[in-house]
Simulated assay, not measured.
Amino acid sequence: MERRYKRINDASKELSEEAFRAYTGKKDYKRAIEIYYLLAESICVPKEISNFSKNMLGKLSKQIKEKS
């Protein structure tokens, strides 16, 4: 069970980093939203990553509204 938790935690961190790179570096908001939504809504994702993803979704939606 501990191995499974570690694998999920590592995968969640990698996805979070990928989404952050898509958001800040490439300005690929669609990809960032897809990843952050997955991390925010999945049950098995650690709480701190889920909360961070929810906050980033809020920031992304605010930026998209400002640009429109």
Rank of each mutant, 00 (worst) to 15 (best):
I43N: 07
T24S: 11
N55D: 12
G25S: 05
D28T: 09
L57C: 11
Y36T: 03
P46K: 11
K54I: 14
E14A: 12
A22E: 08
A32R: 00
S50V: 03
Y5H: 03
S53T: 14
K65A: 13
P46H: 02
S61W: 01
I49T: 09
S68R: 15
K67F: 05
A22S: 14
L15D: 03
L15T: 03
M56Y: 13
M1C: 12
K30C: 09
L38Y: 13
K54H: 10
I35F: 02
L15K: 12
I35S: 05
A11V: 04
S16N: 13
R21G: 07
A11T: 03
C44T: 00
K65W: 02
N51S: 06
N9G: 06
S12K: 02
R31K: 15
R4Y: 04
K6W: 12
A32P: 00
I64G: 09
E18I: 01
E48W: 09
M1W: 02
I8A: 04
P46Y: 05
C44M: 05
Y23I: 04
K27M: 08
A40T: 02
Y37N: 01
I64V: 08
I33E: 07
K59G: 08
E2L: 05
N55P: 06
E18A: 09
L60G: 10
N9R: 02
S16M: 04
R3H: 05
V45K: 05
Y5I: 07
K62D: 11
L57N: 08
Y29F: 14
E34R: 13
M1Q: 01
K62S: 12
I8N: 02
S12E: 04
K13M: 01
F20T: 07
L15I: 01
A32V: 14
L57G: 05
T24M: 10
R31V: 11
D28M: 09
S68M: 15
L15E: 03
S68I: 15
F20N: 00
D10C: 12
L38I: 08
D10R: 08
I64A: 10
R7Q: 13
L57R: 04
M56L: 11
N55R: 14
K59I: 13
S53R: 06
E18Y: 09
K30E: 15
F20E: 10
Y29M: 01
G25M: 04
I64E: 02
L57E: 12
E18F: 00
S16E: 06
I8P: 05
M56F: 13
T24G: 01
K6R: 15
S61E: 13
E66A: 15
A40L: 06
K67M: 09
K59F: 08
K67I: 14
D10Y: 04
I8G: 08
